Amino acid sequence: MKKFKKIIPLALAVTLTCASLPMIANADSSKVVTIGTNLSDDQKKSMYEYFGTSKDSVETIEVTNQDERKYMEGIASEAQIGHKTYSCSYVEPTTSGGIQVKVANLTFVTSSMIASTLTTSGVENCNVVAASPIEVSGTGALTGIMMAYETASGEKLDEGQKEAATEELVTTGELADDIGQDKATDLMNDVKENVIANDISDEDKIADTVDEKAKDLDVNLTDEQKDKIVSLMEKISQYDYDVKSLQQTLNNLEGKSEGFFTKLVNNIKGFFGGNNSNSGGIISQTKDDILGSDVVSNSTLDDIKDKVQNADTEGWWDKVVNFFKGLTGSDSDSSDSNSSDDSSSN
C-alpha cells in the first residue's frame, strides 16, 4: 500500500513538472527547405519525401555553388567546395532544447560538427536535417542551413560569425582525418566552450587552452593544426554569445545528463498529453528508406542516447531512478522500503 501511495505524488510531481516546461518544438515557427540546385527533378522530389514534407508545405530556397563559395573560398580547398551543389537541408527554429541535427549521406561532416558550428554562427535553438540523395562531403551544407535559418526565424546572423562557423566546420573535418571525428569534435568543443565561458581573447592564453584540452583528450597536434585552431578561436572570441545556450548544445553533444533528461521529461510530457510528436521535431519525421538501404546517417539525438547509456560513472536506469527521486525530493525511500519489506515478511 505504501508503494502505491508513493506512486501518486510521484505522478503528480511529474505531471506538474512537465506541464511547466516548454515544448522543444515551436509549433508557430516557419520551416524552410534548401535544395541543391544541381539535383535532378526526381532527386529534388525524393528529398522532400525524405524530409517528410512537400514543396507546397514549406518555403524552399535553392542553394547554388556560388552561395557556398561566398563563405568557403579561402577556407576550404577547391576539391571540398567543388563546382556543383547537391546538399539539402530542412530547418525548424525552436524555442528551447539547443541545437539538434541529423545528417544523411554526408561523408566529411557529422551531425555533431554541424550542431557545434551552428552555435558559432549565432544560432541557439533549432532542429536541422542535412542530407543528399547521393554521398557528398557536406562541407557546403552549413551554408544552406544558415540561409534557411535566417529565412525561417526572420533573424539575420552576423556575417563574421557565419564565416567563423564555416571555418570551424572545415577545420574540424580536416582534423578528424588525422585524429578521428569524435576526438576532433570534442577538442574543438572543449576549447571553444572554455574560450567563450572565460572570455579568453589573448593568443597565448588560447594556445595554452588548446594544449590543455589536447592533453586531456590524449591528442597530439602538429604546429599547423594548433595554429589553425588558435587563429579560429581568436576570431570566435570577438563575438558575444549566450554562454548558457551554447553550453546546452555542447552538453547535449557530450551526452551529459542535463541535455538527455530535458528530453526525457519532454517525452514524459508527451506520454501524459497523448502526443510525443514534438520530440526531435522534424528529425523524427525523416524517412530513411527513401535514400536507400545503404544510406549513411547519424544524429545528435542518437549520440545522446548512446553516450548516456554507455556512461561509466552511472548506469542508465540509475540515472532515471535518481532523476525521479530528485523530483519528489525524497530521501526516505530506503526506510519506507525497509518497513514494507518487514511487513510483507510477516
Rank of each mutant, 00 (worst) to 15 (best):
S46K: 12
D312R: 14
G140D: 00
M1A: 15
I179L: 11
E73L: 07
G180N: 09
L16S: 12
K228L: 06
M113L: 07
S334M: 13
S46C: 05
Q100D: 09
V91H: 03
E234T: 03
F51H: 09
L187E: 07
K44Q: 15
Q247G: 05
Q285R: 15
E49G: 07
S339N: 15
Y90K: 01
G329P: 13
Y149L: 05
I282Y: 06
P22M: 11
L12K: 15
N266L: 14
L327C: 09
K244Y: 07
D178R: 14
K156L: 03
V128I: 14
Y86T: 04
C18T: 15
N198S: 11
I282S: 05
A19E: 10
M23P: 04
K263T: 06
E174V: 12
K213D: 02
S96H: 13
F324H: 09
G144I: 03
R69E: 13
S277C: 03
K70T: 13
G154S: 02
D67Q: 03
E168D: 11
D41E: 10
I75W: 04
F271I: 12
T117N: 14
S201T: 12
D199W: 01
L301F: 09
N278H: 10
M23Y: 13
K269E: 03
S344C: 04
V230G: 06
S284E: 05
T249E: 06
F261T: 10
I99L: 08
S29F: 11
V170C: 07
E92A: 04
E92Y: 05
F260E: 03
D318E: 13
A27T: 10
F323V: 00
Y149D: 02
T249M: 06
A19R: 10
W317E: 14
L187T: 08
E254V: 06
E59V: 09
L253P: 03
S337M: 12
V219N: 07
E68L: 08
G82S: 04
T15N: 14
N194S: 12
A311T: 01
S96T: 15
T117P: 03
E73M: 02
D306F: 10
Q161L: 04
S46L: 07
M72P: 00
T171F: 03
N127P: 01
A197Y: 03
S77F: 08
G259L: 08
N338M: 11
K5R: 15
S231V: 02
Y90C: 01
K319M: 08
Y239Q: 03
T85P: 07
E203W: 01
L217A: 04
V14W: 01
D341E: 14
L12N: 11
L217K: 04
Q66L: 14
I304R: 15
N127E: 03
A152Q: 07
E124F: 01
E78V: 06
V14E: 13
F4M: 09
S231I: 04
E59N: 14
C18S: 15
N278W: 05
D204L: 13
Y149G: 02
Q309D: 13
Q247W: 01
D67H: 07
I200A: 12
T209Y: 00
L217N: 06
E254M: 10
T34E: 08
